[in-house]
Write a protein that binds this DNA or RNA. Structure first.
Length: 206
DNA sequence: GGAACGATTGAT
DNA sequence: TCAATCGTTCCT
């Protein structure tokens, strides 16, 4: 579908973002996770684009009992051991997909879970995918976000500097107030403060 | 081969 | 508070 309004909206959004260098992702998950707040996650789908500004993340490292990589490499978590800048997508509770950004060097087994974004582009697609038109419910939570973007395990292991999914960094560093807290929904590593959220954002989960 | 469980969500 | 739902992991 040729949609001049969508194209104009995309041009306006992309004006302030660009593909970060590989080194951006090669830092440890704890460093990268807060840096991803304010970045743009964008995905191509059926000739259109869905995108949003990241407002909530969580860091997972290999020495962390809550991390999928804690017990080493398996069939499911193998993407976590790629170098930084790739997707790690897994199914949770047999129902929901969760989207992660790998970080660190190759074999380090680190990733950042993207828990929420502020919808920016393709909101009509998100509404269709999510079967709700309540904007706060579209992408506030990892399962919701993946559903809104149409992300599933088919998108596991993709480069986030590639054609299908891109993670773009703002060109000008603006000061963002970030709230650090314990992570959501885990039973191990509960005391580690590795959740990062845009302060007072209406778009974060819980 | 089988059991237990999980980085969640939505309805009650 | 609880059910949904299934791939992965780990144990036998």
């Amino acid at each position: 579908m040729y949609d001049i309004q969508s194209l104009q909206n995309r041009r306006r959004i992309l004006r302030n973002f660009s593909i970060p260098p590989v080194e951006f992702f090669s830092r440890s998950a704890e460093i990268l996770a807060p840096e991803l707040i304010g970045c743009l996650l964008t995905k191509r789908t059926c000739g259109r684009f869905v995108s949003g500004i990241i407002v909530e993340t969580e860091a997972y490292t290999e020495d962390d009992p809550a991390s999928h990589s804690f017990r080493g490499r398996t069939v499911r978590n193998r993407s976590m051991f790629k170098r930084g800048g790739f997707s790690y997508v897994y199914l949770i509770y047999g129902i929901h997909n969760c989207f992660n950004v790998t970080s660190g060097i190759r074999d380090s087994g680190e990733a950042v879970l993207i828990r929420a974004v502020k919808p920016a582009e393709g909101i009509d697609i998100m509404i269709t995918n999510r079967s709700t038109d309540r904007l706060e419910d579209l992408c506030s939570g990892p399962g919701r976000l993946a559903q809104a973007f149409g992300i599933d395990r088919e998108h596991d292991g993709l480069s986030l500097r590639g054609a299908e999914i891109q993670l773009l960094r703002p060109d000008t560093a603006s000061k963002i107030d970030i709230c650090v807290s314990t992570r959501i929904g885990i039973k191990k590593g509960v005391d580690l403060k590795r959740r990062f959220a845009h302060m007072k954002s209406r778009w974060v989960s819980v």
